[in-house]
Amino acid sequence: SADEVPAIINSDPPITNLSKRPVLQPKETTPPQFLCTLRNPQGKVCVRASLGVEYVVRENKKNYYFNMNPSSTQATGFCGNQKSILSLDFDGGHLEFTFIKVPTVAFISMKILAPSAFHNKTYVGVINHDKLFKAKNGLSFQCKSQMTLILASYFRVKLVPLQIQAFDLANGAFGKEVECWEDYNKRMIPIILGAVAAAVCLIAILTYVLVRERRGQGYEQL
């Protein structure tokens, strides 16, 4: 089950002494999944996210990794009617989601700051113009497959698994899931391949039967 990250609403004091600064690792491991919620000053949930986060940095032709740790991460942000912001903060970086609501659809633009503990370098990546994780209002976006966001030639972020929603969360819970394209392909491709294989087998059987019948008719005419 996912750990829950404590949320701090925008009226709370700034965060200090979050954790020990992260260190990029030479080997990749599965990131822990955690749950975070953001509430407005009235206590109503405006953003809810369940995810695992892995940073991938390429340095000197090698990949290095950092998994976001739920125990050293805090959720801050802002709740608005048309725009909300969720920031997952840790000592050394943060992952920020900006949610935009239009009349029928909510989507996300992302601004990301990576860990800065590798050779005292700061790795920055921004996605400002793409509409990510689109879902109709009241629904949540879900992707069980790994989602990789390429932010630069040397920097990417992996999200796995992911379920996220802003605005219109009934009783603070996720709405019905909108399936990502990667999950849809994984689910449909075996079905399509199975249907194609069944069709090929059926065609082969029908061809065999027709050929056999024609041969039988030919013998009778002789």
Rank of each mutant, 00 (worst) to 15 (best):
S1F: 06
S1K: 04
S1T: 04
E4I: 02
V5W: 00
P6S: 00
I8W: 11
I8Y: 13
I9N: 11
S11E: 10
I15R: 10
S19H: 09
S19C: 11
S19N: 14
P22V: 03
E28W: 12
T29N: 13
T30D: 13
P31K: 07
P31S: 09
P32S: 12
C36A: 14
T37R: 15
C46A: 00
C46K: 00
R48L: 11
R48A: 10
S50Q: 15
G52C: 07
V53W: 08
E54R: 15
Y55K: 08
V56Q: 13
V56M: 12
V56L: 09
V57P: 03
R58T: 15
E59G: 07
N60T: 12
K61P: 06
K61M: 12
K62D: 13
N63V: 03
Y64Q: 08
Y65N: 04
N67P: 07
N67R: 09
N69P: 08
S71A: 15
S72L: 13
Q74D: 14
T76R: 14
G80E: 04
K83G: 13
L86F: 07
S87K: 15
D89L: 14
D89K: 15
D91R: 12
T98H: 14
T98E: 13
K101L: 07
P103R: 02
T104V: 09
V105M: 04
V105S: 00
M110V: 08
I112M: 10
L113Y: 11
A114Y: 05
P115Y: 00
P115C: 00
P115Q: 01
S116N: 10
A117T: 10
F118V: 02
H119I: 06
N120T: 04
V124F: 12
V124S: 10
I127P: 05
I127D: 13
N137W: 05
L139R: 15
L139T: 14
F141H: 01
Q142A: 12
Q142T: 15
C143E: 05
K144W: 08
T148R: 13
I150G: 07
I150Y: 12
I150Q: 14
R156D: 06
K158Y: 06
V160Y: 11
V160W: 08
I164W: 01
I164H: 01
F167I: 00
A170P: 03
A173T: 11
K176I: 10
K176C: 06
K176R: 10
E179Y: 08
E182N: 10
D183N: 01
N185H: 13
K186V: 05
K186G: 07
R187S: 05
I189S: 04
I189V: 08
P190M: 00
I191C: 08
A195R: 09
A197T: 06
A198N: 04
A198T: 08
A199S: 06
V200E: 02
C201M: 08
L202M: 02
I203P: 01
A204R: 00
I205L: 01
L206E: 00
T207L: 04
T207H: 03
Y208W: 10
L210M: 03
V211A: 06
V211W: 06
V211D: 02
G216F: 01
Q217L: 09
E220Q: 09
E220Y: 13
E220L: 11
Q221V: 08
Q221C: 04
Q221S: 05
